[in-house]
Nucleic acid binder design. Structure first.
Lengths: 227, 227
DNA sequence: CTATCATTCAAACGTTCGTTTGAAACTGAA
DNA sequence: TTCAGTTTCAAACGAACGTTTGAATGATAG
């Protein structure tokens, strides 16, 4: 039982996961067939059922492989910030930066397929399949709680309900932005090379989100007027 | 050729479109089968191919039925604002209000299936299928151009490239918010009755978007620092 | 009533789906 | 070399897919 004996075992599974990551993005979970996946991975058709049990289990494995470390990393980034702050409340932009930064750092390394996965995630968030939703909820719950607590400490004057909605908006902006980058060129003939400058995108996105989070509260008057 | 002879012709098509709107949302375009659609609509399996030609053509019809009037309505709202302004530049929040208001007014009337459609749209935006993307682009282009022009007049000091990105962010926030309302209760145990108060949601969303659109420009320093 | 048109229907088309099977190929340890 | 255990493979399973067909049904006009 040397190292060599372990690695090849995981190699087939990794090839399948990589292929699934790419093809689930292109065709959706239901649209990407087992034959497409195994052909892309260069493995036998039966390999998915052998290694993962079923297509559903493969979907879960694809999501878990990246989401688990991603959310762990998001929490770790927050931990680091709070440690540095030594008890003082964090600046909202620092909290946003920790969350956004983790996501974008994943996009930057295209070799690891992180870019594919982030875009796949954007699709997954709006997937109405109950099993998918339950899984996503389960995988995100810990990080969401931590960030909600951090925002609450940073903005004690912001009503809790308002904060929940603004977190929802921020989360939506982030995931949509990363998933549907093509929409930018829908709005304007945007040079595609700009779209992949993750640093610049991070700055733009963070500026937008910070402003949105700190926006003045919607007045009761504006609701009345609209009604 | 009386009125009675025309109406039943359209009834079967309408039943199919309604069923497709609901089931495309639940299972995706590829996941919702012809047999599911026709069973839900209470029509024969062959009816879709007879009335629409193919499943792809049905998808296009489902999108067009609501998107065409929706974007027409968005443009009309902007026309009305500019007429009232009589040459003066519009306030950014007024432009945002016109766009957001049209979307939310559609959600409000649940009878017409508008709610289903809006959520379906959120999924469609992140669909990577090229035909879908081309169709969406084609259907949205006129409204996007008009709104971009309006924002440019309202915010002449905002660089064009920055505006494009912020419109992208705003569009993403809106569509994601409407598509993935369940994520709110992921962030917090939110009372579901709040989620459907479209007026309050409109106020919250508009406040968030206005602040984001008017955010201070991301400084070169912040990009440098991050790198 | 009859002829004409549009629409509906049950049945079947060939294809592809996710999964299963049992034998073949390969592995490391005895 | 033998052997148990793991992984791969070609082949096939029944089910469901989108689509087509031709006959039955309906309504309209002459």
């Amino acid at each position: 039982m040397s190292l060599r004996s372990v690695k090849p075992v995981h190699e087939t599974q990794t090839r399948i996961l990589d292929a699934a990551e790419a093809l689930f993005l292109l065709h959706g979970f239901e649209g990407a067939s087992m034959r497409m996946l195994t052909a892309r991975a260069g493995v036998n058709l039966a390999a998915i059922n052998y290694h993962f049990g079923s297509k559903d289990a493969l979907i879960e494995a694809v999501l878990r492989r990246r989401l688990d470390p991603m959310n762990t990393s998001r929490i770790a980034a927050l931990d680091r910030l709070e440690e540095q702050a030594a008890g003082r409340p964090l600046a909202p932009e620092a909290i946003i930066g920790a969350f956004v930064g983790t996501s974008l750092r994943m996009i930057e390394d295209a070799r690891g397929g992180g870019r594919n996965f982030i875009r796949l995630l954007g699709r997954t968030y709006t997937d109405p399949d109950k099993r998918i939703r339950a899984l996503i909820g389960q995988l995100y719950a810990p990080a969401m709680e931590r960030y909600k607590a951090a925002f609450t400490r940073a903005l004690p004057e912001l009503p809790g309900e308002e904060l929940v909605w603004r977190m929802h908006f921020m989360f939506g902006t982030l995931s949509y932005t990363l998933a549907a980058t093509d929409t930018v060129q829908l709005i304007a003939g945007c040079k595609p090379e700009d779209r992949y400058d993750a640093r610049l995108l991070e700055a733009r996105l963070t500026a937008f989100l910070v402003a949105g989070l700190m926006a003045p509260l919607p007045s009761v008057a504006s609701v009345r007027k609209a009604a």
